[in-house]
Design a protein around this nucleic acid. Structure first.
Length: 273
DNA sequence: CTCAGATCCTGTGCGC
DNA sequence: TGCGCACAGGATCTGA
């Protein structure tokens, strides 16, 4: 379940193997991803990777011809650097063969991921055009979020998971940040005060930062073996803890469904409205 | 326009 | 031990 911290640490981990290398060949074993991989992607061969960047949970490989490879890991995708003799496992859908012999291998059992090649910069691509600010940038702040929320009666949890408001806040981080802010996940977004949004934004930033630091620790040797995802190293307070007691007040953690997503909360620390 | 629900997919973990 | 099923989740699509 790659969340933003995992995508960031993946980017950092694979960068040394990709930067200034050329793509010799791309092998597609399974094209049926969230959006089927287009045969256009074969045209990335021969291009040098000049830079890597991340936008939300999208990973972008910038190529020397001005083109871009856009990769999304979905919820079960991994990228690994492997050697040519490394056996191909089930769900190893795509290989990027690099000059020098290393391979960037994409593994994704549930195939919710995405690989897209464009010969043009992707800023205006529909997948990226409407994304909100990066959560760790100053563009993501309580003030802006407060004003965007004034007409929104949707649950605050759905609001902060909406990639038009802010990118990279998945179910785990939304759930945990609402706990740390003392806000019930079903609270209508418009009912929150500026002070509450300031608090929520600060918690999102600190939890994501902490997760990136710990994900980095987990992924330091990710190329040697498959470590647990970084966020498991976080001490989760409510996510996946329904039925257990709150670490702060011993009240039993409850769980509800908000737009199809399980949402755990402490009814005492996060009172409704 | 706004919001909720369905949808895609397969591995995991539970109950029987 | 094994079978069947509910569940997990990001982002998009549909429909009320």
């Amino acid at each position: 379940m790659p969340e933003l911290p995992e995508v960031e640490t993946t980017k950092l981990g694979i960068s040394p193997y990709l930067l200034h290398r050329s793509i010799d060949r791309i092998i597609i074993r399974e094209a049926r991803l969230r959006i089927p991989v287009s045969s256009d992607i074969y045209h990335c061969s021969g291009q040098q990777i000049s830079a890597l960047s991340r936008r939300g949970k999208y990973l972008l490989l910038h190529l020397s011809n001005g083109g871009t490879l856009l990769i999304h890991l979905g919820m079960s995708g991994h990228l690994r650097i492997v050697n040519p003799e490394s056996p191909v496992r089930k769900h190893d859908h795509i290989d990027l063969l690099l000059t020098g012999g290393k391979i960037l291998r994409y593994h994704d059992p549930r195939r919710f991921g995405l690989w897209l090649y464009s010969t043009e910069p992707l800023e205006k691509h529909p997948l990226l055009a409407h994304l909100g600010p990066e959560p760790l940038s100053d563009d993501f702040n309580g003030h802006d979020l407060f004003f965007k929320s004034r007409q929104k009666k949707q649950a605050v949890k759905s609001f902060i998971m909406d990639s038009r408001q802010v990118v990279g806040v998945g179910n785990i981080y939304a759930t945990e940040s609402l706990f740390y802010s003392g806000i019930h996940p079903k609270t209508p977004a418009k009912a929150l005060s500026l002070k509450q949004f300031d608090c929520l934004v600060q918690k999102i930033k600190s939890i994501l930062t902490q997760a990136i630091d710990q994900g980095g620790t987990t992924l330091r040797d990710f190329y040697a073996f498959d470590g647990k995802p970084g966020y498991f190293a976080l001490s989760l307070q409510v996510y996946n803890r329904a039925g257990k007691v709150c670490n702060l007040c011993q009240t039993k953690i409850q769980s509800t469904i908000i737009t199809g997503r399980s949402s755990a909360y402490c009814p005492n620390c996060q009172p409704l409205f």
